[in-house]
Design a protein around this nucleic acid. Sequence first.
DNA 1: ACTCCTCATATCATCCTACAACCCATCAGG
DNA 2: CCTGATGGGTTGTAGGATGATATGAGGAGT
Lengths: 243, 243
Amino acid sequence: MLRNRATELGSSEKLPSKVVALLYRDIDSGTLLPGSRLPTEQQLADQFGVSRNVIREAIAQLRADGLIDARQGVGAFVRGKEQRAAIRIDREDLNDLSNMERLFELRRILETEAARLAAVRRTAHDLHLIGQHLRRMMGEERWQDGSIDADLAFHREIARATGNTYIHTFVSFICNRIRHSIHYARLTNPLHDLVTVNVAEHVRIHAAIEAGDAEAAAQAMSDHIAGAAARVGVKLVKQESGG
Amino acid sequence: MLRNRATELGSSEKLPSKVVALLYRDIDSGTLLPGSRLPTEQQLADQFGVSRNVIREAIAQLRADGLIDARQGVGAFVRGKEQRAAIRIDREDLNDLSNMERLFELRRILETEAARLAAVRRTAHDLHLIGQHLRRMMGEERWQDGSIDADLAFHREIARATGNTYIHTFVSFICNRIRHSIHYARLTNPLHDLVTVNVAEHVRIHAAIEAGDAEAAAQAMSDHIAGAAARVGVKLVKQESGG
DNA sequence: ACTCCTCATATCATCCTACAACCCATCAGG
DNA sequence: CCTGATGGGTTGTAGGATGATATGAGGAGT
């Protein structure tokens, strides 16, 4: 059939997504300057040849990201980049290893300090939860989905123990992205033999946090993440105490 | 009446935002497990007492964040946390100082390490750009909008000089959020006298990066952010070399 | 001349109904 | 057993109607 009319926007995606993409491009490229007003919803609907409903859903997405500020009775305005409320890392970005290296680098920075803070601030309850995830991981012989979940829960729990919700949010985000790309790339197969190494590193981190030794916890976490990176084929440069 | 239904959910916010908040909470708390299917749009509309259109806009936002995967003819499904594509910090979260303290803490962690990496990796061009923003800041006598922009550009440029796009993205995000909340809270007034202090700290950072001294750059940045936090009424605990 | 209030207007916000596109389970027919 | 049609259920899209809200013009009162 002649779906060519849709070719103008694309084919498989839904209409709101296409509208979002087009508006996003206009904003990003500077065609729509910050502070300027968007056309009326009705005008946009006419312009793109879709219903006002579609425009509204598109604007809802842009508004969720903080790119647009819609005020009832006035109009929708482009907000500056400095006002964006969301940060986005596209899945495709993580496919090649050089990006994985950068992400692991960021992860080491965040989690090393998270471990340092957690060692000082953790409550007894925090320690209990961290230990719980550790024991869950130790129970497994092979490196499988359950192990990955326990591994990540361990890291998230440490981030939570800092008492800093932002650190917890950022660490969770990064960990989950890494988990997803590992799952995606099927990198788990050659790692079965190394699960004991991973557990040993976790034990070391847990012990340092339990002891309240901030420096030891930081060093253990830094080493662990460098090791984890190496295990998926990413080499990190030396950090801390390396001069 | 329609008023009563709105009262049930709150008053000032728009309906889709409230629906998003409620669904988000259910997903985050585990009431809605990953993989499970949401009620149909019509059922949700009845349940919340709003129109299906509102539900659709809410789902559009959640879908943009990767929390929900809606498939035509099938239904909407909760996606696992590992598939989330965006991280969000609501504007309201930054209003009180305790949250600002947490955000500054995270900022110090990231930017301290960014400075450390930048000192080693920066190219001559990076250094030139960093210096440019510094000189732009030195040219101003008072603390005004231009100063803030130059200040942030300075920090962003350092993050960029790490060569790690993720660090740059995260640092930019945090800086911009802080700038926004500073602008919002009108915290700039009592700071006019302190601009020279701020510039002096920037000079110290720049000098360390220019010299390629990673440790000095990290220490300078850490001190600077602690100082900047103090200037907006946030006190950070000691970090690094403080014991 | 100035201020305050009212009101018309433009716009977004919400609601409603209807239809199209799509997936899936079911089942008739080979 | 396999294949293809069919029907019901769900999301996707369309379009109009009404409520809510901000803005500015214009008039009444001082």
